[in-house]
Amino acid sequence: MEQRKGSELAWDGRRGNAWVDLQPMLDRLFFPLEQILADAAVTQSPRNVLDVGCGTGATTLAIARRLAPLGTCCGVDISEAMLDHARHRAMAESAKNARFLAGDAQRYRFETGSFDAVVSRFGVMFFDDPEAAFANIGNAVAPGGRLTSLVWRSREENPFMTAAERAAAPLLGWGAPVDPHEPGQFAWSDPDRVARLLRAAGWHSVDVVSLDVRCRMTEADLHRYARCLGPVGMILPSLESSLRDRVLAVLDAAFVEFLIDGAVQFDAACWMVSAQAGSRPC
């Protein structure tokens, strides 16, 4: 169990490097979600947007393009590997209004009120103290600034995202997570808990809306995805060869149900979380 939790959180090691290597494929996969978040983020014409858990920069750059030339988008992440890649992408497209900070948004000393909106695409579920994290992020946002975040709903509602883990768990001796709210992909699956956390951290006008978004990838992309990402992908290289072969066999079988005419299709079951920073208006 500890191996799974460790690889879930190792964004600045093997996992971060995997996301860099697979960036083009992951950007294609999550493009529909990127567009939804960017659309929502620019609704109120913000000037300075913070992107929490920006990874390799796809959402940061998408928002920066929409805000140019007057607005900016700043991504923050703990993974130096992903941030280096994001900076190179920004330079390649001369996105001078996109910048990137290395740090943990839970503890980073942002300038008070320096942003008027904050967004995140699957980047807020890994804080060890989410209430403290969103109190800190809230301090960085001017009163009235909006939060818009996409997070995963439950494991049960996301069978594609959990297929590898469910298939390989019996071979690896993994049991079900003891704490469903431990930091990780599905830590924000309970909408009532999400709303309580945000209100306790000083946010108001909290809204949590169910969202199902069709995502697609090629069969070739699936092969790399299943072997390189997630808890199973992280542990595969360290397995002895016979066990690794057995795990690979069950992975191939687990994803067959998602293949339609040579391509993968699945619904990403998400929550779109929104809230407002500062004191509730009278």
Rank of each mutant, 00 (worst) to 15 (best):
P231L: 00
W11S: 05
P69W: 15
S154D: 03
R227V: 02
E257T: 12
M91T: 14
A195L: 12
M91H: 14
A58W: 07
A132K: 07
L222E: 04
G55D: 08
D267G: 10
A249F: 10
S7G: 11
R146C: 01
M272A: 06
D190M: 06
A168H: 08
Y108M: 02
C270K: 01
A140Q: 09
L83G: 07
C215H: 14
M25E: 00
R47H: 05
A140I: 10
T43N: 10
F134R: 00
L147H: 04
G278Y: 11
H204E: 11
A18G: 02
A187C: 01
A220C: 08
P237Q: 13
P159A: 03
V264H: 03
A163E: 12
V178T: 05
D104N: 13
G123I: 06
A133K: 12
V213T: 06
G75Q: 00
D116K: 08
F30P: 04
L243Y: 04
I63T: 00
P183V: 13
R199T: 14
A169I: 10
L171M: 03
A268M: 05
A132L: 09
D129H: 12
P24N: 01
N158R: 10
Q3L: 12
A140F: 12
A41I: 05
D104T: 04
S149K: 06
R146N: 12
R99K: 14
L251N: 13
P170E: 12
M272Q: 15
Q185M: 15
L61K: 11
D129L: 02
W203E: 06
G175V: 11
E165C: 01
P231C: 09
M217K: 09
D39S: 00
